[in-house]
């Protein structure tokens, strides 16, 4: 079972994506050989009330729930997030939270986010946090959000030791810093979408830093060709079990599904 931990539905205002729909995304994943995916909606990055995008996400994944695992996008600085979270979880069955602190302009480890993260802990929801979308060299001049910095992750992971964090699109430098700085870190894992290889050896370094249980396949589809991330993973020198974990079992565990042996 191959599970992609970093996929999106929706448009991106700065360029036309390969697809904006669930059907299109599934076609892309089929071609690459990916069975299931954790998805969030890009519109949540830009709407004043990101919860509007959760309604769109709910509608988009209907009929594909066997393959697409929706994560709800919320902004802890926006009114009514408790009600919105309740609707996402209880009514729409969303399986985790998706946060964009740099686009929504709040501190991941700050007091504003603390209540939302405490609620995620209470509900046992994993929290996926995006470091960035596009390569810094090619961003549109209106796409000004900074990348999520390693100290933001450090502080949040330290402050909320019982929240299960998935950090997506983190470069190897950020992973390295977090692993060095946070003493416990058992509650943070990373996806592979911004880790290159094999010449730089970053993908192998990530595996050695994180071990077999905290690295998850992430393709950043449909922003990027998913085949690339799958090729990178093939260059990790890991035991068969470790490889299975990266390719799918770690993602399933994150969303509370115990993978079959």
């Amino acid at each position: 079972m191959i599970v992609d931990a970093n996929c999106h539905i929706g448009h991106w205002p700065f360029r036309r994506l390969w697809t904006a729909t669930a059907d299109g995304l599934l076609g892309m994943l089929d071609r690459a050989g990916v069975d299931r995916a954790i998805v969030s909606h890009t519109h949540g990055v830009f709407y004043r009330s990101p919860h509007e995008s959760n309604a769109e996400l709910h509608e988009a994944v209907e009929g594909h729930r066997d393959r697409l695992i929706p994560f709800a996008c919320l902004n802890p600085d926006y009114a009514g997030w408790r009600d919105d979270l309740k609707q996402c979880v209880e009514e729409w069955g969303m399986r985790g939270l998706r946060l964009y602190p740099t686009y929504h302009r709040y501190a991941l480890a700050g007091d504003g986010a603390a209540e939302l993260l405490a609620e995620a802990e209470r509900l046992n929801l994993p929290v996926s946090v995006s470091c960035a979308f596009e390569d810094r060299r090619q961003r549109h001049h209106l796409d000004t959000a900074p990348d999520l910095a390693e100290h933001d992750i450090d502080f949040a992971v330290h402050r909320h030791p019982n929240v299960r964090f998935l950090i997506t699109t983190a470069p190897i430098t950020v992973i390295d810093m977090v692993v060095r700085h946070v003493a416990h870190q058992g509650n943070v894992c990373f996806d592979t979408s911004s880790i290159t290889g094999p010449l730089s050896d970053s993908i192998q370094t990530a595996y050695e830093l994180l071990g077999p249980n905290r690295l998850l396949l992430g393709t950043l589809a449909p922003f990027e060709y998913p085949e690339v991330a799958l090729l990178r993973v093939q260059f990790i020198e890991a035991e068969a079990q470790g490889m299975e974990n990266i390719l799918g079992r770690n993602a399933l565990r994150l969303v509370g599904e115990e993978p079959s042996p």
Partner: peptide, 12 residues
């Protein structure tokens, strides 16, 4: 020097 990236994008 971006080996998987070069191959993967054309495959995809």
């Amino acid at each position: 020097s971006s080996m998987c990236e070069g191959v993967g994008k054309l495959q995809g």
